[in-house]
């Protein structure tokens, strides 16, 4: 068996964590290169949230009551935390479609036949999506400012708190891409991953405090909305942005939104990363 033992082999990895990080970055780089070569995907990803900002601001703005105020400016300031949070969750569909496409094209088979870290294909993908989400948020924040959004409507502006809010948004988006990863591995076609990744996001993001005051919902729906993990991040952002319309509900996530947002996001990552990596290990196109 001399040819077998003497043949050039890949260098044996040092420590598993180092290998995992390195492999994830290789895959992340690959996905970022892809995204840069399909700019229309990034652009379409921007159009929807920008449309929401503009439509909600100008169509709903005049008729919404926020904390007893009917001022359109108050609604704009209330709305942005919701739109930001909704936008980051929509990264789910991109992650799912990307992974389903890799399965479909046989790339997952190739990766699985390589001596690479098991979770790296998915981690690399979710990291690349995180970069895209950050870019999207940046553009969206500029548009929001253009339509009149301002932080610190109570007079206090704290840059660190604003950055913390964007941090929570990115974490939420990252968590949701792991749900997308699991969806992508579970469906047969990229098309199914796109629609399957989006449909459930509508109830999740609308049965929440994102666009309306939960105080006006029927009690059972209100409870769902206030315990919705998504609502915790929205509330946390409103608090950190010092924007109007913060929920005064007694529900724990509404009273401790920053902690609730952190805990929910970390839990989602732990659960869905575990499930997705397990699914990946037995994945078959």
């Amino acid at each position: 068996m001399s040819a077998v033992t003497d043949a050039v082999r890949g260098t044996a990895p040092g420590n598993p964590l180092g290998q995992s990080v390195r492999d994830s970055l290789v895959i992340a780089k690959r996905n970022l290169i892809r995204m840069s070569r399909i700019p229309e995907m990034v652009i379409f990803g921007l159009i929807q949230p920008i449309m929401f900002v503009v439509l909600f601001t100008y169509v709903f703005g005049g008729s919404m009551q926020i904390g007893g105020s009917t001022s359109a400016t108050d609604y704009t300031n209330f709305l942005m935390a919701g739109i930001f949070a909704q936008t980051v969750t929509f990264a789910t569909a991109g992650a799912g479609a990307g992974i389903a496409d890799d399965m479909h094209k046989g790339l997952i088979d190739r990766f699985r036949s390589l001596p690479m870290a098991r979770g790296a294909v998915l981690t690399g993908r979710t990291l690349a999506d995180l970069v895209q989400t950050a870019l999207t948020l940046l553009v969206l924040a500029v548009v929001a400012i253009l339509v009149g959004w301002r932080v610190g409507s109570d007079g206090s502006t704290d840059a660190a708190r604003v950055l913390a809010a964007f941090g929570l948004l990115l974490l939420l988006g990252y968590a949701f891409t792991w749900i997308g990863a699991l969806i992508g591995l579970s469906v047969r076609t990229p098309e199914a991953a796109t629609s399957g990744g989006l449909i459930w996001l509508f109830p999740v993001t609308f049965i929440s405090n994102a666009f309306v005051d939960t105080g006006n919902m029927t009690p059972w729906l209100r409870h769902i909305a206030e315990w919705n993990p998504f609502s915790a991040t929205v509330q946390a952002c409103r608090v950190l942005f010092a924007n109007p319309g913060q929920s005064t509900s007694d529900a724990w996530p509404m009273q401790h939104p920053v902690w609730a947002s952190l805990i929910y996001s970390v839990l989602i990552i732990l659960i869905f990363r575990t499930l997705a990596v397990r699914k990946y290990r037995s994945a078959t196109a």
């Binding site: 890949g10 260098t11 044996a12 990895p13 290998q19 390195r22 492999d23 290789v26 895959i27 780089k29 690959r30 290169i33 892809r34 070569r37 399909i38 094209k105 046989g106 790339l107 088979d109 190739r110 990766f111 390589l114 001596p115 690479m116 790296a120």
Partner: peptide, 25 residues
């Protein structure tokens, strides 16, 4: 495999470099 499992949005060179790195080179 049965399908040419290459990333069509990467160049030939990028594809091979990626695979090499994932073989831990």
């Amino acid at each position: 495999g049965q399908f040419a499992a290459v990333d069509e949005y990467l160049t030939g060179r990028e594809n091979l470099q990626m695979v090499g790195q994932l073989y831990q080179m």
